[in-house]
Structures are given as C-alpha cells and as structure tokens.
C-alpha cells in the first residue's frame, strides 16, 4: 500500500484549512445568531405555527397534523364574562408538539426566557394535556418585555375550555396553512423576504434578525417569480379574492402564471356537496371561449379543507 506517506503535511494542512473554514462559517455565526433575542413577531409566529412544518414524524405526509390553532377569544372561557378588546390565544390540543421556544426557552433570548419561565410557567406545559398560550407583557430589569404566558398554568384555561367558547370564524388554522405553503411549494415563486435594499414601498419592511427564533423551516425562498408574501395579509385581507385566486388565478388576474390550486378544496364544498370539478372546468372553458358571459361560481370551501388553512395562513402574514 502506497499510503499517504508523501502527503503528511498536505493532509494536515487540509484538515486545518477545512476546520478553520468551518470554524469561521459555522461556529462563529451560530454563536452570534444564538445570542439574538426573539422579537414579538418571532414569539407570535412560533406559537401560531408550532414545532416543525417540514417533514417530521408527527406529520410525515405533510397533511397539517399536529398543529396549534390561533383563537380570537371574545369571552373568558372560565367565567363567560366578555373580554374587553378580545384576546388572541394559541391552543395546543393534547398531543400537539410545542414549538422550540417552549421546549428550549433559552432560544427566546435574555429577559424573555426568564419571564416566560418564572411568570409564564411555560416549562410546566405538558404535551399530553395540551396547553393554551398567549403573548403577555412584563417588566424585566425596568424595561417592558413580551413573553409567553402558559394560560393553562397561570389561569387554568384548558384547550377544551377555549374551544368550547370559540366559534369557527374565530379560529385560524395558520399553522396547518404553513404546512400547505411548504408542501405545495408556494415558496418556489413567492418569497417571504422583502429585501433590505429595496422592496420597502411595495412589499413592506424587511424582517429583523430576531424575527425567526423557533421557526422551521424559514422558507425564505430564493427565486422570486411572484410577489413577496411576508406582509400579504396587510395588503389584501379579502378572503373572497383569495378564494377565487387560489381556485383559478386567471379569474382575478388574467396574466397570472400561478398554477390552479383547486385540488386543495378536497372532495366536498362548505355545504357538504360533492364538487364537480369537470363541470366547472367545462364551464370555465366556455367562458374563456366567449360562450358564457360570466365564469362559473367558485365553490365555497369546507371549514376543515386544506384551502381554508392556507387562506388563514395568508391572512396571518401581516
């Protein structure tokens, strides 16, 4: 065996070069990034999206299972008294995996971690019992800081209590919607990243360093073939427009090159009737050929359909 006898110095230098490169490009940035505190956006985002959106063993087929619900509460679920101004809570049904910030509060950043653990009791949350979280404000070293409050521990509100008083229109399935966003590859064309050097006027403010703590995958997207969506919910809050646009983008934007996502409606519409896609397409063809004056009506989606969660996710992108 000839071995690497003549290459002793070279092999060591190779190890040194690659090790040094990984030290600068992996170790140093990860120390730096880990020291960044969560912004309010990051806290709200991880609570509404949950543990993991890409492939994971709780939801291997990316069907949007194992996801929290975001509920706009109008009444106190225990006493039934109206809550002034309402309250946006995040409901983790029993068995739903908690996001990284609950499992490892240190990623939340200085101050937020202390308040979330001591006042918010997030480490008391149990996966098998479920939990209800809310964003709260507290004082840390004289400064006001947002933190995560585990209402199940601090007020005794269980997921069951909250869901009993919540109406369907008060519930956002944004967490499941992000799964649809990842699975359907929306991010191959729509970025979630207004750029730092332009985009302010059209797509809104670029995100900050701390906006992503606890989120996975971040799905920034790299190839923008369509408008940025990070703040789409602020630009366009019409569910009707979204519904038509997803069913067939050419209904509202004749020049759009977006694919049709009618298959996210599933088998049945809101009334439980079977959706006849073939008939819809035939009528739409007649419309495009000028044989009909108006396009066929877009079927309204069922409340447990995949498209409902995707539209909820769009609405949550403020």
């Amino acid at each position: 065996m000839a071995g690497f006898r003549e290459y002793k110095i070279g092999s060591r230098l190779f190890g040194l070069a690659l090790g040094g490169s990984m030290c600068i490009t992996l170790l140093m940035p990860s120390i730096n990034i880990a020291s960044v505190s969560s912004t309010d956006i990051a806290l709200a985002k991880q609570l509404s999206i949950g543990h993991e959106t890409g492939f994971n063993l709780d939801d291997p087929f990316l069907l949007g299972k194992n996801k929290p619900l975001n509920v706009s509460l109008k009444v106190d679920p225990k006493s039934g008294q109206p809550l002034s101004g309402g309250m946006s809570v995040y409901v983790y049904q029993p068995g739903t995996a908690f996001p990284a910030g609950i499992l490892h509060p240190r990623i939340l950043g200085a101050g937020i971690e202390e308040l979330s653990v001591q006042q918010g009791h997030v480490t008391d949350a149990r996966k098998d019992a479920g939990a209800v979280f809310v964003l709260a404000k507290g004082l840390y070293q004289g400064k006001e800081v947002s933190y995560i409050d585990n209402l199940t521990a601090t007020k005794g509100w269980t997921p069951e209590d909250v869901m009993r008083v919540a109406k369907d229109e008060d519930v956002s399935h944004a967490g499941k919607g992000k799964t649809m966003f990842v699975r359907e590859g929306c991010w191959w064309c729509h970025t979630l990243l207004p750029e730092q050097t332009q985009d302010w006027q059209v797509f809104g403010a670029p995100p900050m360093l701390g906006d992503f703590n606890g989120e996975s995958p971040t799905a920034f997207g790299s190839d923008r073939k369509a408008p940025d969506l990070l703040h789409v919910g602020s630009r366009n809050s019409s569910k009707e427009w979204m519904m038509m646009h997803f069913f067939n983008p050419r209904l509202v934007q004749p020049h759009s090159i977006m694919p049709r996502f009618d298959y996210l409606w599933g088998e049945k519409d809101a009334a439980g009737q079977k959706i006849d896609f073939a008939k819809w397409r035939a009528e739409y063809s007649e419309y495009t050929e000028g044989k009909r004056v108006t396009p066929p009506e877009v079927p309204s989606y069922a409340s447990d359909s995949e498209i409902r969660s995707l539209i909820d996710f769009m609405m949550s992108l403020k």
């Binding site: 880990a34 990051a42 543990h51 703590n213 971040t218 920034f220």
Partner: peptide, 29 residues
Amino acid sequence: FMVIIVFLVGNLPEFFHLTGLTEAYLTWW
C-alpha cells in the same frame, strides 16, 4: 470527503431541529 461532511453538517437543522436563522443559514451553507 468534503461532500460527506457537507451532507452531515448541512442537514443538522433536520437531525436536531435547529430553528430560525440557524436553519436558514445552514440551508444555504
């Protein structure tokens, strides 16, 4: 040798559920 390292290190976010900017950066790493 390097492609094995890149495969194992670049996918750390998936193996150990690293989140946030660490995930975004390692994706592009």
